[in-house]
Amino acid sequence: MKVNHIRQNVFPVLAALIWGTAFVAQSVAADHVEPFTFTAARSAVAFVFLLVLCLVFRALRQRDFHGEAQPRPGSRRDLAVSGACCGVALTVATNLQQMGLETTTSGKAGFITALYIVIVPIAGIFLHKKAPRAIWLSVALAVAGLYLLCVQESFSITEGDWYVLLCSFCFAGHILLIDHFTQKVDGVALSCVQFLVMAVLSAVLMLVMETPNWAGLLDCIGPVLYVGIFSSGVGYTLQILAQKDSDPTVVSLLLSLESVFATIAGALILGDRMSGKEYLGCVLMLAAVVLAQLPDFSGKRGAPVREP
């Protein structure tokens, strides 16, 4: 039980830390290659990394079972279906976000994307997975904190903002799909298949809608490898492992700390200065996360609250 508690709380925070610090690498890569090219490259790197990881885990299991028949979490069909569904959702979400960033600011995009922390519990109501009532206070605090942290200018709606809003719905769908499929298949294998799907779909879109710049891709190979291995391969796998038997609303709150880590990384690595408004946003975000972890707020630990 204690191991499950650590997995459900530490893993999503680590994922948020990786995603937040990867913002610098993504910004560098955006100066060299177009969105679909970058997404295809990072997804291919993530797939190869996770495939190697799956093979290593398989070899270790065979050693532990001395070549005997061993329990397999889920069939190949379950894995294919879950990987396809999660891969499509993640592909659409990632590329909508990248399209939106062409005409909106990164701060607004970060705030609108993180609205999945509101969409997830609302969608959960229709899926008979209610979040505890008290956790809505955490959601409200997190939204307020995200606004202070991300939005530095007057808030107006642009075409890019609509793309990013659609992206937040897709990310919420991705979280809910993972909540459903992690009960059936191995988490690392699911992450591997979803990135194979993402790499194939993004490569097709790249060839249809872009002119691949191979020289530019080589110029940013470092950021591509970092984002592919850590942000994609490690980060999303941590999310999948964290969501097994967890409340998706609490996990989404922890994942939204990405905005806090991105702001801190910008200050430490790029020398960006944080304003008082941003500091207050960080405090509200952290308060929301702490409240969500209190027993009276999160309800029964280790499982989503379901309607009868």
Results as ranks from 00 to 15, higher is better:
Asp186Glu: 15
Ser275Arg: 01
Arg42Lys: 08
Phe38Cys: 04
Lys184Leu: 13
Ser27Leu: 07
Phe65Cys: 09
Gln239Lys: 10
Leu50Pro: 12
Phe49His: 05
Val251Pro: 04
Val33Asp: 05
Asp245Lys: 15
Leu177Ile: 14
Leu291Glu: 03
Ala142Pro: 11
Tyr163Met: 15
Gly100Cys: 13
Val24Pro: 07
Ser202His: 11
Arg77Glu: 03
Pro12Tyr: 11
Cys167Glu: 01
Pro223Cys: 09
Ile221Lys: 02
Arg306Pro: 09
Pro121Cys: 07
Cys170Thr: 03
Gln97Asp: 00
Leu241Cys: 13
Val260Lys: 03
Asp64Val: 10
Gly110Met: 00
Ile6Ala: 15
Arg58Tyr: 13
Pro71Arg: 10
Asp161Val: 02
Gly228Lys: 04
Thr21Gln: 08
Ala134Arg: 15
Thr104Gln: 05
Val290Asp: 01
His5Ile: 14
Ser154His: 05
Phe155Leu: 15
Leu176Val: 02
Cys220Ser: 01
Glu210Met: 06
Thr182His: 03
Leu225Trp: 09
Leu284Ile: 11
Lys277Ala: 08
Val227Ile: 12
Arg61Ala: 10
Gln98Phe: 08
Gly216Trp: 04
Cys282Asp: 06
Thr104Ser: 03
Ser252Thr: 07
Leu55Arg: 07
Ile18Asn: 06
Asn9Pro: 08
Gly107Val: 01
Val28Arg: 13
Thr249Asp: 06
Ala29Pro: 01
Lys108Val: 00
Val185Tyr: 01
Ile117Tyr: 06
Ala41Pro: 00
Ala215Leu: 13
Lys2His: 13
Thr113Gly: 11
Ala69Tyr: 01
Lys184Cys: 06
Met198Trp: 08
Ala199Ile: 01
Ala123His: 15
Leu166Thr: 02
Ser246Val: 03
Gly107Cys: 03
Val56Ile: 15
Ser231Arg: 04
Cys170Gly: 07
Val197Thr: 12
Asp64Gly: 10
Pro308Glu: 12
Asp272Ala: 06
Gly187Trp: 05
Thr263Tyr: 04
Thr237Gln: 05
Pro35Met: 06
Ser298Ile: 05
Phe171Asn: 00
Ser43Leu: 00
Arg72Asn: 08
Gln243Pro: 06
Ala140Gln: 09
Pro35Arg: 07
Cys220Trp: 00
Pro71Gln: 11
Arg77Lys: 14
Ala265Asn: 05
Phe57Tyr: 01
Phe23Cys: 10
His66Trp: 04
Val151Tyr: 06
Ser82His: 11
Lys130Tyr: 15
Leu137Asn: 01
Gly173Thr: 10
Pro121Gly: 10
Arg61Pro: 02
Ile229Pro: 11
Lys277Thr: 11
Val260Trp: 03
